[in-house]
């Protein structure tokens, strides 16, 4: 019995770790890597660190996009002497860009957010 069980055991035990172990680890790592490339994994971890920090950061994204868009619109108006026109358009676009930025940084992990 002992001879019987010792026969299959060595062949059974070292088999899976040497065969499935590294390949699974590798597959897991590549899968995680792929996931990390799809969504900013660091941003995800940061957002999880504290809800307050995440909220402030999303706010910063919104405000900065709005600022940049406002400056662009105002600059175009200044050049073309069409004062309110481009400012109005770009402020709206800036809002969209801000939401896009905030969403990209805090996109759900399972969705590859470009």
């Amino acid at each position: 019995m002992s001879g019987n069980s010792s026969g299959p055991r060595p062949s059974f035990e070292p088999g899976p770790p040497s065969e499935a172990g590294p390949s699974f680890e590798q597959r897991l790592r590549t899968a995680r890597e792929r996931q990390g490339l799809d969504t900013p994994a660091g941003a995800q971890a940061k957002a999880g660190a504290s809800g307050w920090g995440g909220g402030v950061q999303a706010g910063v994204e919104l405000v900065s996009a709005e600022l940049v868009a406002g400056a662009m619109g105002w600059g175009l108006d200044h050049l073309l002497h069409t004062l309110p026109l481009f400012l109005v358009i770009f402020v709206l676009l800036g809002g969209a860009a801000g939401v896009l930025n905030a969403f990209r940084r805090f996109a759900p992990a399972n969705k590859p957010g470009r």
């Binding site: 950061q57 910063v60 994204e61 405000v63 900065s64 996009a65 600022l67 940049v68 868009a69 662009m72 770009f90 676009l93 800036g94 969209a96 860009a97 801000g98 896009l100 930025n101 990209r104 470009r114």
Partner: peptide, 30 residues
């Protein structure tokens, strides 16, 4: 971005450019 409808392209390109340019602002402001 690939796969976006051509009609929306001007809008999307503008939004993407604003989004790209707002990066240094948000980075420094944060």
């Amino acid at each position: 971005p690939p796969g976006a409808p051509a009609v929306l392209m001007p809008l999307i390109v503008l939004i993407e450019i604003i989004s790209y340019l707002s990066r240094p602002v948000s980075l420094s402001m944060r």
